[in-house]
Each structure stands twice: as C-alpha cells, then as structure tokens.
Simulated assay, not measured.
Amino acid sequence: MSTPTPTPSAASSARASEDRSARIAVTIFPALILLAAAIGFFLPDVGQSLAPFTSIYLGVIMFAMGLTLTIPDFSLVARRPLPVLIGVVAQYVIMPLVGLGVTILLQLPPELAVGVILVGCAPGGTSSNVITYLAKADTALSVTMTSISTLLAPLLTPLLTLWLAGSYLPVDAGSMAMSIVQMVLIPVVGGLVVRLLLGGLVARILPALPWISVAGISLVVIAVVSGSTEAIMSAGALVLVAVVLHNGLGYLLGYWAARLLRQGERAARTTSIEVGMQNSGLAATLAASAFSPAAALPAAIFSIWHNLSGAMLAMYYRRTADKHQVDPT
C-alpha cells in the first residue's frame, strides 16, 4: 500500500511548521549546549555514563538529517554545479588549512591541535541549513552543499586528518573512515530511503527533527566535557580563542572564495555559512574515540560557539539583504 502524497497546501503547512520549529531550536540551541557543557563539567559521572553511546547519538542525528533530504536536493548538482562545487571544495580546503594554521599560530599541544584540525576536516554542520534560511541566503544550495560534503566525509575527513594531523599524533585513517561510514553515511542514506518510502509520515514529524539533533549533540557535549575537565581548567581559554579564529576565518574566506569566483551575493553568503559551520558532533565523537577526550574539547567548544556566531551572522545578513539586493529564500 503506497503512502499518500501530501497535497501542496499540506506540504506548505508542514514546511512552515518545520521552519518555525527550526527557528526556535536554533535560537535556544546555544543555551542548551551551554547547559549540557555545565552538566558535563560539574557532574562528570553523569557524562561518563553517557560516553560509551556517543556514536549512537551521532547516528540518530545523521538519520534525522537523512529524513530531511529529498532527491530534488541533489538535483541542484546537475542544474547549478559550479556554486555547489565551490562550496564543497572550500569546505574541505579552507577549514582544514585554517585549522592547521591556528594550531601553529597558537602553538597548541598535540591533543588540542589534533582536535582543532579534525574539526576543520569535518563536513558541513546540519544547523548551517537553518542559519542559511534565517539569513535569507540560498537554503537549497546550503542543503545540497551539506549533503555532498557529508557523503564525501568517509573519504576526505580521514585522509585530510592523516595528512594535516599525523605529525601531532598517530592517525588510523582506515578505522576513522569505517567509523564515519557507520555513524554518518549509513544513517543518512537510511533516512533518505525512509523519506522516499514513507514521505507522508515523515512530513508529519519534520518539525521534531531539529529537536532530535539538538538533543543528540547535547548528549555528545555532556559526554565529551565530562572526560576533559582537566583540559578545560588548563587550556579552556586557549581553545576558545582557537575556535573563534577558526570559525570566523571560515566565514570570511568562504564568502570571498565564492565572490572571487564570480558567484552572486546569495551564493557567497551561503558558502560563507556552510564553510564556517562544521559538523562538530562528528568531530567530537571521532576525536574521543580515535584520540582522547581532551582532543574532543575543541569540537565541543566549537559546537557552542558556531551556533552563537551563526545566529549573529544570520541576523546581520538578514538585515542587509535588501541593501545587497538579496532576494528572500
């Protein structure tokens, strides 16, 4: 028995409900992540009880991301290949190299250096799509960039981490690739297939998906922070400086990479957000499992900061959209 296809009005209503839920989630997301960090820091036993299941939390987040995807999201690659290519290449060139540059500039110790570089080698963050929507940039382009960079992560994230961070700590690229396949690729594809088969049912639960992602990342942060309390006490301020530099340069260089390659204002703003916002939940989980809880600290802090900075950037982009003749999404 086939699932009935939602009528246009029902689909529009579901999309509006999803957008409202996403806006609320991204607004209070930083506060929830800060609360999660506080729980992990002051109640480390709670965090350590959650730590063995971080890969499961990430898998749930990625499955939820897959449920939001549709085949037309990928058709943009054929219709507008250049902006998608620019965004994905910038994602995997700018952020890894900036991460390496920040570690050298700040002379970070090996575990923290690997953590910062791993954040840079991660694919685009799922919250970048909501930030793009709020910024009146190109949401469809953002979704496509995030999807493609995520699908490429099993290959590019381990290779780039090995290349850039291998001099700091040993990197098992093969094991990391397999972990990304299990925690990211399979859940995302699974979610996409479920959306194809049960589109009507999934449409009804779309508004809940941002909250599932928020809950999953919060649990990852609690687990990571609980295992790195000593690193926070000794180097928390230094890591925050590294994260702010990494994220800010990602926004700036992502924007200008697109502009220098003759992309329009909306595409440049989208690339800026996509490049600057990373899948910090993946980076934290990989760092904790492949290296140490201290190596996961940069990703945990990045998770807090990039949502704060992304919300501020979206506010600026939205307020200047008319000035730059940016059409609303």
Rank of each mutant, 00 (worst) to 15 (best):
A153F: 03
T320D: 09
L297F: 12
R269C: 12
R318W: 00
A283P: 02
I56S: 12
V189P: 05
V244N: 04
V188Q: 02
G40R: 03
L201Q: 12
H306W: 11
L162G: 11
A296M: 08
A284P: 02
I61T: 12
L249I: 13
A268N: 07
L201E: 11
R204E: 09
A173L: 04
M178V: 12
S175I: 01
A137M: 10
L100I: 02
Q48A: 10
A25E: 07
T5L: 14
K136P: 02
V116D: 04
A10H: 06
L156A: 11
L286P: 04
E111Q: 13
S12E: 15
T329S: 14
S309H: 08
V119H: 04
T54E: 08
T68V: 07
H324N: 15
G190I: 03
S128D: 09
P72R: 12
L32E: 02
G216K: 04
L206G: 00
D172L: 00
A37D: 02
S75I: 09
S2Y: 11
T3A: 13
P81I: 13
G87P: 04
V26F: 05
P154C: 13
I131D: 00
V84L: 05
I148N: 06
L151H: 06
R319V: 10
P154Y: 12
A283Q: 02
H246F: 01
A268Y: 04
I117H: 01
I131E: 00
I86E: 06
A113P: 02
E18Q: 14
P187T: 05
L249F: 11
L159Y: 08
L108H: 10
V93K: 05
S226A: 15
A16M: 10
D45A: 15
S303C: 14
R20G: 10
W211E: 02
T70S: 14
T103R: 00
A237G: 04
N247C: 12
L260M: 12
V116S: 05
P210I: 09
I301N: 03
G216P: 05
T270Q: 09
L160H: 06
L261Q: 05
T7Y: 09
R259H: 10
R262L: 08
G216R: 04
L164A: 10
